Simulated scan of single mutants.
Amino acid sequence: MELIKTKQELNIKIAQLRKKNKTIGFVPTMGALHQGHLSLVESAGKHCDVVVVSIFVNPNQFNDPGDLERYPRDLEKDMGLLENTACELLFAPAVEEVYPESDERVFDFGELDKVMEGEHRPGHFNGVAQVVSRLFEMVKPDKAFFGQKDFQQLAIVREMERQLNLGIEIVACPIVRESDGLAMSSRNTLLTKKHRKSAPLIAKTLKESCNFDPFKDIAEVKEYVIRNINGDENLEVEYFDIVDGDTLKAVDRWADSPYIVGCIAVFAGEIRLIDNIIYKNPEA
Protein backbone atom coordinates (compact mmCIF):
# COMPACT_ATOMS: atom_id res chain seq x y z
CA MET A 1 0.00 0.00 0.00
CA GLU A 2 1.27 3.43 -0.94
CA LEU A 3 0.38 6.65 0.88
CA ILE A 4 -0.32 9.63 -1.39
CA LYS A 5 -0.93 13.13 -0.06
CA THR A 6 -1.11 15.38 -3.12
CA LYS A 7 -3.31 15.59 -6.18
CA GLN A 8 -0.24 15.71 -8.40
CA GLU A 9 1.08 12.40 -7.05
CA LEU A 10 -2.36 10.85 -7.41
CA ASN A 11 -2.72 12.01 -11.02
CA ILE A 12 0.56 10.27 -11.93
CA LYS A 13 -0.49 7.00 -10.29
CA ILE A 14 -3.98 7.00 -11.83
CA ALA A 15 -2.53 7.73 -15.29
CA GLN A 16 -0.16 4.77 -14.92
CA LEU A 17 -3.04 2.47 -13.96
CA ARG A 18 -5.14 3.67 -16.88
CA LYS A 19 -2.30 2.93 -19.30
CA LYS A 20 -2.38 -0.66 -18.03
CA ASN A 21 -6.18 -0.78 -18.49
CA LYS A 22 -6.71 -1.44 -14.78
CA THR A 23 -10.20 -1.01 -13.34
CA ILE A 24 -10.24 1.24 -10.28
CA GLY A 25 -12.45 0.79 -7.24
CA PHE A 26 -12.77 3.71 -4.82
CA VAL A 27 -13.75 3.81 -1.15
CA PRO A 28 -14.05 7.40 0.16
CA THR A 29 -13.84 7.66 3.97
CA MET A 30 -13.28 10.23 6.71
CA GLY A 31 -10.91 7.91 8.55
CA ALA A 32 -11.40 6.44 12.04
CA LEU A 33 -11.71 3.19 10.13
CA HIS A 34 -13.56 0.12 11.42
CA GLN A 35 -14.70 -3.22 10.06
CA GLY A 36 -17.51 -1.54 8.13
CA HIS A 37 -14.99 0.43 6.07
CA LEU A 38 -12.79 -2.64 5.62
CA SER A 39 -15.76 -4.58 4.24
CA LEU A 40 -16.14 -1.87 1.57
CA VAL A 41 -12.45 -2.26 0.69
CA GLU A 42 -12.90 -6.02 0.51
CA SER A 43 -15.88 -5.64 -1.80
CA ALA A 44 -13.97 -3.19 -4.00
CA GLY A 45 -11.09 -5.67 -4.20
CA LYS A 46 -13.42 -8.37 -5.47
CA HIS A 47 -14.85 -6.19 -8.23
CA CYS A 48 -11.86 -4.11 -9.40
CA ASP A 49 -8.17 -4.55 -10.26
CA VAL A 50 -6.96 -1.75 -7.99
CA VAL A 51 -8.51 -0.22 -4.87
CA VAL A 52 -8.03 3.40 -3.85
CA VAL A 53 -9.11 4.50 -0.37
CA SER A 54 -9.30 8.16 0.62
CA ILE A 55 -9.16 9.56 4.14
CA PHE A 56 -10.35 13.13 4.32
CA VAL A 57 -12.38 14.83 7.04
CA ASN A 58 -14.47 17.20 4.96
CA PRO A 59 -15.18 20.47 6.82
CA ASN A 60 -17.94 21.40 4.35
CA GLN A 61 -20.33 18.70 5.60
CA PHE A 62 -20.23 19.59 9.31
CA ASN A 63 -22.89 22.00 10.48
CA ASP A 64 -21.50 22.03 14.03
CA PRO A 65 -17.86 23.17 14.42
CA GLY A 66 -17.73 21.19 17.65
CA ASP A 67 -18.73 18.03 15.80
CA LEU A 68 -15.92 18.62 13.30
CA GLU A 69 -13.44 19.15 16.12
CA ARG A 70 -14.57 15.99 17.96
CA TYR A 71 -14.40 13.76 14.89
CA PRO A 72 -11.74 11.07 15.60
CA ARG A 73 -8.52 11.21 13.56
CA ASP A 74 -5.67 8.67 13.65
CA LEU A 75 -3.98 8.22 10.26
CA GLU A 76 -1.32 5.85 11.60
CA LYS A 77 -3.92 3.53 13.09
CA ASP A 78 -5.99 3.67 9.89
CA MET A 79 -2.96 2.76 7.80
CA GLY A 80 -2.33 -0.23 10.04
CA LEU A 81 -5.89 -1.45 9.48
CA LEU A 82 -5.56 -1.05 5.69
CA GLU A 83 -2.14 -2.68 5.46
CA ASN A 84 -3.38 -6.24 4.84
CA THR A 85 -6.41 -5.35 2.73
CA ALA A 86 -6.96 -4.87 -1.01
CA CYS A 87 -6.09 -1.17 -0.68
CA GLU A 88 -3.21 -0.34 -3.03
CA LEU A 89 -3.32 3.45 -2.87
CA LEU A 90 -4.27 5.51 0.21
CA PHE A 91 -5.05 9.12 -0.63
CA ALA A 92 -4.91 11.32 2.49
CA PRO A 93 -4.90 14.94 1.27
CA ALA A 94 -4.81 18.16 3.26
CA VAL A 95 -7.81 20.49 3.00
CA GLU A 96 -5.99 22.79 0.55
CA GLU A 97 -5.44 19.86 -1.84
CA VAL A 98 -9.16 19.18 -2.08
CA TYR A 99 -10.23 22.82 -1.82
CA PRO A 100 -7.46 24.99 -3.31
CA GLU A 101 -10.20 27.62 -3.38
CA SER A 102 -13.60 27.62 -1.70
CA ASP A 103 -16.25 25.49 -3.38
CA GLU A 104 -19.31 27.66 -4.02
CA ARG A 105 -21.29 25.08 -5.98
CA VAL A 106 -24.87 24.52 -4.90
CA PHE A 107 -26.50 21.27 -6.00
CA ASP A 108 -30.21 20.87 -6.58
CA PHE A 109 -31.37 17.50 -5.31
CA GLY A 110 -35.06 18.34 -5.20
CA GLU A 111 -36.59 16.80 -2.09
CA LEU A 112 -33.79 14.23 -1.56
CA ASP A 113 -31.74 16.53 0.65
CA LYS A 114 -34.66 18.31 2.34
CA VAL A 115 -35.95 15.43 4.48
CA MET A 116 -34.54 13.43 7.41
CA GLU A 117 -30.83 14.28 7.70
CA GLY A 118 -31.30 17.26 5.41
CA GLU A 119 -33.99 18.72 7.62
CA HIS A 120 -31.86 18.44 10.74
CA ARG A 121 -28.48 19.21 9.13
CA PRO A 122 -29.09 21.91 6.49
CA GLY A 123 -26.27 22.17 3.95
CA HIS A 124 -24.80 18.83 4.98
CA PHE A 125 -25.52 17.02 1.73
CA ASN A 126 -24.33 19.89 -0.42
CA GLY A 127 -21.00 19.51 1.39
CA VAL A 128 -21.08 15.76 0.76
CA ALA A 129 -21.75 16.31 -2.95
CA GLN A 130 -18.95 18.88 -3.16
CA VAL A 131 -16.30 16.63 -1.65
CA VAL A 132 -17.38 13.37 -3.28
CA SER A 133 -17.52 14.97 -6.73
CA ARG A 134 -14.03 16.45 -6.21
CA LEU A 135 -12.67 13.10 -5.06
CA PHE A 136 -14.32 11.38 -8.03
CA GLU A 137 -12.67 13.92 -10.30
CA MET A 138 -9.26 13.21 -8.77
CA VAL A 139 -9.45 9.41 -8.48
CA LYS A 140 -11.47 8.80 -11.67
CA PRO A 141 -12.79 5.41 -10.49
CA ASP A 142 -14.86 2.89 -12.42
CA LYS A 143 -16.81 1.94 -9.30
CA ALA A 144 -17.28 3.65 -5.92
CA PHE A 145 -18.35 1.74 -2.81
CA PHE A 146 -20.57 3.15 -0.06
CA GLY A 147 -22.13 1.62 3.05
CA GLN A 148 -25.89 1.37 3.28
CA LYS A 149 -25.89 2.72 6.86
CA ASP A 150 -25.79 6.24 5.39
CA PHE A 151 -28.88 5.48 3.32
CA GLN A 152 -29.76 9.06 2.42
CA GLN A 153 -26.15 9.86 1.54
CA LEU A 154 -26.18 6.93 -0.88
CA ALA A 155 -29.25 8.37 -2.62
CA ILE A 156 -27.59 11.80 -2.80
CA VAL A 157 -24.35 10.42 -4.26
CA ARG A 158 -26.26 8.46 -6.88
CA GLU A 159 -28.22 11.56 -7.89
CA MET A 160 -25.04 13.69 -7.94
CA GLU A 161 -23.30 11.14 -10.17
CA ARG A 162 -26.34 11.09 -12.48
CA GLN A 163 -26.47 14.89 -12.73
CA LEU A 164 -22.75 15.20 -13.47
CA ASN A 165 -22.84 12.20 -15.85
CA LEU A 166 -19.53 10.83 -14.51
CA GLY A 167 -19.95 7.25 -15.69
CA ILE A 168 -19.10 5.85 -12.24
CA GLU A 169 -21.03 2.86 -10.86
CA ILE A 170 -22.18 3.50 -7.29
CA VAL A 171 -22.13 0.23 -5.35
CA ALA A 172 -24.14 -0.09 -2.12
CA CYS A 173 -22.77 -2.48 0.51
CA PRO A 174 -24.74 -3.93 3.46
CA ILE A 175 -24.55 -2.44 6.97
CA VAL A 176 -21.85 -4.06 9.11
CA ARG A 177 -22.81 -4.40 12.76
CA GLU A 178 -21.13 -5.03 16.08
CA SER A 179 -21.86 -8.38 17.78
CA ASP A 180 -24.65 -6.69 19.77
CA GLY A 181 -26.28 -5.26 16.64
CA LEU A 182 -25.09 -1.65 16.83
CA ALA A 183 -24.31 -0.35 13.34
CA MET A 184 -20.57 0.21 13.05
CA SER A 185 -19.66 3.89 13.01
CA SER A 186 -16.59 6.00 13.70
CA ARG A 187 -18.71 7.85 16.24
CA ASN A 188 -19.18 4.72 18.36
CA THR A 189 -15.71 5.28 19.84
CA LEU A 190 -16.94 8.58 21.29
CA LEU A 191 -19.78 6.99 23.28
CA THR A 192 -19.53 6.89 27.06
CA LYS A 193 -19.76 3.48 28.71
CA LYS A 194 -23.42 3.90 29.67
CA HIS A 195 -24.43 5.24 26.26
CA ARG A 196 -22.56 2.43 24.49
CA LYS A 197 -24.48 -0.07 26.61
CA SER A 198 -27.82 1.48 25.59
CA ALA A 199 -27.04 2.07 21.89
CA PRO A 200 -27.79 -1.49 20.63
CA LEU A 201 -31.45 -0.86 21.52
CA ILE A 202 -31.70 1.16 18.30
CA ALA A 203 -31.02 -1.81 15.99
CA LYS A 204 -32.94 -4.21 18.26
CA THR A 205 -36.05 -2.02 18.10
CA LEU A 206 -35.82 -1.56 14.33
CA LYS A 207 -35.53 -5.32 13.88
CA GLU A 208 -38.49 -5.95 16.17
CA SER A 209 -40.56 -3.42 14.24
CA CYS A 210 -40.30 -5.64 11.14
CA ASN A 211 -42.55 -8.14 12.93
CA PHE A 212 -45.37 -5.58 12.79
CA ASP A 213 -45.24 -5.20 9.02
CA PRO A 214 -47.90 -5.44 7.59
CA PHE A 215 -50.04 -6.15 10.67
CA LYS A 216 -49.78 -2.64 12.09
CA ASP A 217 -50.12 0.54 10.09
CA ILE A 218 -47.13 2.78 9.52
CA ALA A 219 -48.15 5.34 12.14
CA GLU A 220 -48.28 2.58 14.78
CA VAL A 221 -44.86 1.24 13.81
CA LYS A 222 -43.35 4.72 14.02
CA GLU A 223 -44.95 5.31 17.40
CA TYR A 224 -43.63 1.97 18.72
CA VAL A 225 -40.04 2.57 17.57
CA ILE A 226 -39.87 6.09 18.99
CA ARG A 227 -41.52 5.15 22.28
CA ASN A 228 -39.35 2.07 22.80
CA ILE A 229 -36.04 3.84 22.18
CA ASN A 230 -37.00 6.94 24.15
CA GLY A 231 -37.88 4.60 27.01
CA ASP A 232 -34.15 4.30 27.64
CA GLU A 233 -32.99 7.36 29.58
CA ASN A 234 -29.68 7.36 27.68
CA LEU A 235 -31.27 7.66 24.23
CA GLU A 236 -33.39 10.28 22.48
CA VAL A 237 -34.83 9.88 18.98
CA GLU A 238 -34.28 12.91 16.76
CA TYR A 239 -36.38 11.49 13.94
CA PHE A 240 -37.70 8.18 12.66
CA ASP A 241 -39.18 8.29 9.16
CA ILE A 242 -40.57 5.48 7.02
CA VAL A 243 -39.96 6.39 3.39
CA ASP A 244 -39.88 5.27 -0.21
CA GLY A 245 -36.37 3.87 -0.73
CA ASP A 246 -35.88 5.70 -4.03
CA THR A 247 -37.51 9.11 -3.52
CA LEU A 248 -37.13 9.28 0.31
CA LYS A 249 -40.67 10.65 0.49
CA ALA A 250 -42.67 9.57 3.54
CA VAL A 251 -45.17 6.76 2.93
CA ASP A 252 -48.46 6.46 4.80
CA ARG A 253 -49.36 2.88 3.86
CA TRP A 254 -47.34 -0.27 3.18
CA ALA A 255 -49.02 -0.49 -0.23
CA ASP A 256 -47.69 2.95 -1.25
CA SER A 257 -44.34 1.61 -2.49
CA PRO A 258 -42.57 -1.68 -3.30
CA TYR A 259 -39.43 -0.30 -1.62
CA ILE A 260 -39.85 0.96 1.95
CA VAL A 261 -37.11 1.89 4.42
CA GLY A 262 -37.17 3.12 8.00
CA CYS A 263 -34.44 5.69 8.72
CA ILE A 264 -33.57 6.87 12.22
CA ALA A 265 -31.27 9.31 14.04
CA VAL A 266 -30.79 8.99 17.79
CA PHE A 267 -28.79 11.00 20.30
CA ALA A 268 -26.86 8.88 22.77
CA GLY A 269 -25.75 11.69 25.04
CA GLU A 270 -23.98 14.16 22.76
CA ILE A 271 -23.24 11.56 20.08
CA ARG A 272 -25.63 11.29 17.17
CA LEU A 273 -26.14 7.80 15.71
CA ILE A 274 -27.98 6.82 12.53
CA ASP A 275 -29.34 3.49 11.33
CA ASN A 276 -31.99 2.09 9.01
CA ILE A 277 -34.07 -0.98 8.32
CA ILE A 278 -35.49 -2.16 4.99
CA TYR A 279 -39.14 -3.19 5.35
CA LYS A 280 -39.86 -3.89 1.68
CA ASN A 281 -37.34 -4.46 -1.10
CA PRO A 282 -38.35 -5.34 -4.67
CA GLU A 283 -34.94 -6.97 -5.21
CA ALA A 284 -35.19 -9.27 -2.18
Rank of each mutant, 00 (worst) to 15 (best):
G123C: 02
F125D: 01
M116L: 15
R134F: 12
V131T: 04
K140I: 13
G118S: 09
R121C: 00
K114C: 10
L112S: 02
H120E: 12
E117V: 08
V139N: 06
D113Q: 05
Q130H: 03
F145A: 05
R121V: 00
P122Y: 03
D142E: 15
H120A: 12
N126E: 04
A129G: 07
D113R: 07
A129R: 11
N126C: 02
L112R: 04
E111L: 12
E111I: 13
V132P: 02
D113M: 05
H124K: 02
F145N: 04
F109S: 02
P141Y: 09
M116T: 09
F125R: 04
E111Y: 11
R121D: 00
Q130K: 15
H124N: 08
V132I: 14
M138I: 14
V131G: 01
H120Y: 13
F109D: 04
K114F: 07
L112K: 08
D142L: 12
E111Q: 11
A129T: 08
L135Y: 13
V131Q: 04
D142K: 09
K114V: 02
V132G: 00
V132E: 01
R134V: 13
G110V: 12
D108N: 14
F109M: 10
M116I: 10
L135F: 12
D142W: 12
L135P: 14
G110N: 05
P122H: 05
K143S: 13
F107R: 08
H120L: 10
F136D: 04
E117F: 14
Q130N: 04
D113A: 15
R134Y: 09
M116V: 10
H124L: 08
E117T: 01
F146C: 07
N126L: 03
E119I: 03
P122R: 01
E119N: 09
R121A: 00
E119W: 02
A129P: 09
G127N: 03
E119H: 11
S133G: 07
D142P: 14
P141D: 11
F109Y: 07
K140Y: 10
A129Q: 06
Q130Y: 00
